[in-house]
Design a protein around this nucleic acid. Sequence first.
DNA 1: ATAGGGTTAG
Length: 682
Amino acid sequence: MASTPSSTLTPLYESNNIFFNSFTSPHNFTFPLKLYKSSIRTPQVSLQGQPHISQPNNSQNPDRKSKIWVNPKSPRATELKQRSYDFRYTSLVKIAESLDSCNPLKHDVYNVLATLGDKIVEQDAVVTLNNMCNSETALLALKYFQERLKLSKEVIIYNVTLKVLRKNKDLDRAEKVFDEMLERGVKPDNVTFSTIISCARQCNLPEKAIEWFEKLPSFGCEPDDVTYSVMIDAYGKAGNVDMALSLYDRARTEKWRIDAVTFATLIRIYGSAGNFDGCLNVYEEMKALGVRPNMTVYNSLLDAMGRAKRPWQAKNIYAEMINNGFEPSWGTYASLIRAYGRARYSEDALKIYKEMKEKGLELSVMLYNTLLAMCADVGLTDEAVNIFEEMKSSGTCQPDSWTYSSLITINSCSGKVSEAEATLNDMMEAGFEPNIFVLTSLIQCYGKEGRTDDVVRTFDRLSDLGLSPDERFTGCLLNVLTQTAKEDLHKLTICLEKANPKLGYVVKLLVDKEVVEEEGAFKKNAAELLDSVTTDVRKAYCNCLIDICVNLNKLERACELLDIGLTLNIYTDIMSRTETQWSLQLKSLSLGAALTALHIWMSDLNKALEDGEEFPSLLGINTGHGKHKYSEKGLAGVFESHLKELNAPFHEAPDKAGWFLTTKVAATSWLESRRAQEVVAV
DNA sequence: ATAGGGTTAG
């Protein structure tokens, strides 16, 4: 075994939080509650009260009994016609509004419609129904028009009625209306089908949508571009990406004009299937076909890049969108906040937040939560407090358990135990039970303060609430062990055993002197354990276990764990060699794991030296810049002093943050002098 | 705006 002075490896108790945050980020958790939309969307603003529409006192008004003859083909005539149509349209919208709020009784509905007078035309029916939201009164209105009008295109008023039913997500009624159409001998067309199909899609019944699409040919209809687009969307929603794409292919070979909306649909499908390059390819293909992107395309792309955790691409697309003269919509901002928030682009996210406020756009709970979770991630305590205050005073949304979780996490991470406890009380007063996320944060919080008994109490609280520990919760507990004094470790080992017996056993082998270990049992069990947990927590578990070893001065065990980590590909590319440089990559390692890796790397260098291998011109250690807000010092800072203690000739590169470099000559002479010392020491 | 697609997501 080589000769790293192990005393320098010992005190790990406070600093390191490099792996800590993989547990505390609320966005890493799968929240078990399904949240529903808090309010129904307000209906469209009516045209009522727009001043330009009727101005009877205006002497310029051409609608007054004017004797001037106007050439019907002149632009002036077109304008007059337009005005008179605008006027008619406005009154029809008002009728539609009255019908929406009227009793669903034949008598009442007919009375409202009687105000239209006797000279109604087919288009009046279309406009009225098209502006309605109430299914029941719409069906009565449909009857009224059927009784009173000679309809030359009856299918159209059926189609607009179907739109009303779709607004209400009422597929049952839509299907009944369809049957009625057939009974009356009205032939459904593509509009009928696309409306019913999108209704089924919006009802979250994509199988139904497919069913309707499949019966389209039996009514003598050939799907057209819009029907394809709707179906592509429905297949995507049903998770049948292959069918969606093959429809797209079919639409393409049948030379349908594929417009921006369809491309946006395709981008959404690729995005929700996790194929983010697919999204970008569709976008390129679209541009190659000469289709100009619209807002939907941009918003879908931004959303996809957010899911892909590629905030820089979101940024580029947004810039392009602005350059092309588009005004960002609510959806644009929401996508950006999510993209930036998840990726911890805090400055960008906060800028968007500011812009939304300036424009008077309301944020949803989800968006507030995204911002708060981001603040928790990067340690923006003051901003989080501000955002929370603004959220409360917005009057439009109430904090939910996610909100409180983030706030508790923020307090916990900045070591504000009593504030965290107070926030938990607020949460319970607001009617939310503490959940696993909150308890996970609290465990971290107490652990960091060395309040082991409170950690144990919080651990027990979880099962009292009828919850069982998940991998993150257990991982946080394990992380607490890396910060706990030796004499308290046994209290936590008991908890660990309850949470995950295998993990408990592995830790016991490290901590408990009385456990008798069979030859190789530690390595075997540790490997089985790490293999049994999901990949997202493996590295964190391994890092923690190594830290515990390092704390307890069990360097051999630490090396065994690192070896397991390398074998299971938990750590990749830690040590690499090119012709010009040999590197040690420590970026995602905890301090203990990094020190262990350094130890192994130095042994390898020694061996290479012994074997007379040629060293490259440069040797480098990359610690990453370690700019994490919650840890006073990143890995870089700790490493710098550690390397000094070892008299190692590595020096931080001025132009490459987080890199410590040395030359062939310096490295060789350093290793040789260490070996000489070793001989003296023996 | 004036018969069919698009969302508000964790």
